[in-house]
Design a protein around this nucleic acid. Structure first.
Lengths: 130, 130
DNA sequence: CCTTCATGTTTACAAACGTAATCGATCCAC
DNA sequence: GTGGATCGATTACGTTTGTAAACATGAAGG
């Protein structure tokens, strides 16, 4: 048998990720031009580049298209929080043997967390624990 | 002018990272063969592949060599904890706008943290806070 | 000495990525 | 209806990555 029509969530590259962020943020279906305008602030890309990235994302099934006249509107087909979760997990697996607590420990020890952060997290944990 | 003899810590790829882990773990200077034996457990690589990755890492100045007879011994030139810190920060910047606390929040909410993890982290925080 | 083996170096090659130009079709304004 | 603007699709091209074979060289054994 073997998987034909797929499952494996194709890896999204850095440049592609910038496009995804634009889509997530601008949370209605957006045209290529919209995305281009949006990312122009941060990335110095040509419209052509944005279009290329959009097609690649469509191929990877990370976004979906819907026709709108003679153009397309694009929508993310995965939720940002799922993506973020996946990437976080990847990192935790790769660097902390899958133990998320180790990540937190590392952040804390390396002072990536301010005192305020600590307090905030502590409150959060308290809430989650009960 | 422009930077000649460099600074920017060259990005380490996934495959290269596996080599780094081997070096960090096997914490004496190691030969290519040593690394090969070491990673054989997890990655089905040929010795040639390991050698290629080692040279690339040398080029990227992530590891240093010291001659040992007619071969080389390799040593990481960056500490694992620095690397881990850098990668973690990268992720936090990319996905959480630089706010590490958001990462923790996300892990917690998405139940990437078990009850035990929560307790463990809570204890950790308590310790760090005072 | 000559063969064999170990070792680093060079070269290889396909896939993914970053970045874009070009092409073909369509729509809009004159 | 014609010329320019606008779109998606196709093609391009250099770099990085994954994976390795081929090559050169020196050591070691017989």
């Amino acid at each position: 048998m073997a998987r034909k029509s797929d499952d494996s969530p194709e890896r999204i590259s850095d440049a592609e990720h910038a496009i995804m962020e634009a889509l997530w943020d601008h949370d209605a279906p957006a045209s290529a031009q919209d995305i281009f305008d949006y990312v122009a602030a941060t990335r110095d890309w040509s419209l052509a580049t944005v279009k290329t990235l959009l097609s690649r994302l469509v191929t990877k099934q990370a976004i979906a298209t819907q026709p709108d006249g003679r153009r397309f509107l694009y929508t993310p087909s995965i939720a940002r929080s799922d993506y973020v979760g996946g990437e976080s997990r990847r990192l935790v697996n790769k660097l902390f043997g899958g133990r998320a607590a180790s990540l937190v420990a590392h952040l804390a020890e390396s002072e990536a967390l301010s005192m305020d952060d600590l307090t905030e997290i502590e409150a959060l944990l308290k809430e989650l624990k009960q």
